[in-house]
Nucleic acid binder design. Structure first.
Lengths: 132, 132
DNA sequence: TCATCGTGTAGGCAACTGCTTACGTAAGGA
DNA sequence: TCCTTACGTAAGCAGTTGCCTACACGATGA
């Protein structure tokens, strides 16, 4: 991963770590200080601080000074980009495969006993017919 | 990122790279061989091959032998885990903040002229009242 | 003013990523 | 049989991650 990539990459990268996802789930129950967030993990405070830096850089949390403490708060809108990308692509891919399935049904009805092959292989063959 | 983490981490990690997302978008238009996928990128074939390995490891694509070529196909269901996680958390976070907003409104109506502070600070203060 | 608490930063280390070039392997054709 | 094509794997390099310990800094309190 090159440093400082685009916003979407930063969000997905931040989510690609169990510790950081656990921190987000903890924050979903209410804002917390760095010490409170570090407590359940077998990890030093600086390590958590660095994870928080990644989350903040991705726009998923916010750190604000509060006297002696730093309070961490979720930024729900930080997930917008990732949610939009995943939902759009998931829907588009599924729609494409549904079209292929209909194509396969049509082929099956005109050629009921075609040559052997798995469903996936048949789908791949039909694939070519939808590209030009 | 430690090697061989959980499924969700592998998916998000695979999506956290512009090149890999571009490959997925290309594949959404139809399956392709490795050479076809490598063509638009200023990158060697082995580099693309490694990216494909990451995508395959995450369950987002499938590589099948086809004579002399290797055909790559999307696995739409591979996005299921990521889609579910993002949608669930986005909804839960938003719901929580909506509740806080209502709490703030209630506070504002009972104490119309409270002490100074930004909206965010007021939200953080209200935060404590929702936790026990 | 000085000690303490909560955090961030700096420096160091092992492991991993992402890319390269070089080479190995399987399929297809002369 | 030999050559070409398509692709993967191996080895190596620079840069990054993720963790640690040590230390610096601002806020709080005696």
């Amino acid at each position: 991963m090159p440093i400082a990539t685009d916003s979407l990459s930063r969000i997905f990268f931040a989510l690609a770590d169990p510790t950081r996802r656990a921190v987000l789930e903890r924050l979903a129950a209410g804002s917390a200080t760095v010490g409170e967030l570090a407590e359940p993990f077998a990890m030093s405070r600086p390590a958590i601080s660095q994870h928080l830096g990644v989350l903040e850089d991705a726009g998923l949390i916010e750190r604000t000074r509060e006297g002696q403490w730093r309070r961490c708060t979720l930024r729900p809108e930080g997930l917008d980009g990732a949610e939009r990308w995943v939902a759009e692509h998931r829907a588009a891919w599924q729609a494409r495969f549904d079209r292929l399935d209909r194509t396969l049904e049509a082929l099956a009805s005109t050629r009921p006993a075609g040559p052997g092959g798995t469903d996936r292989a048949a789908r791949d063959s039909a694939d070519a017919e939808t590209e030009e």
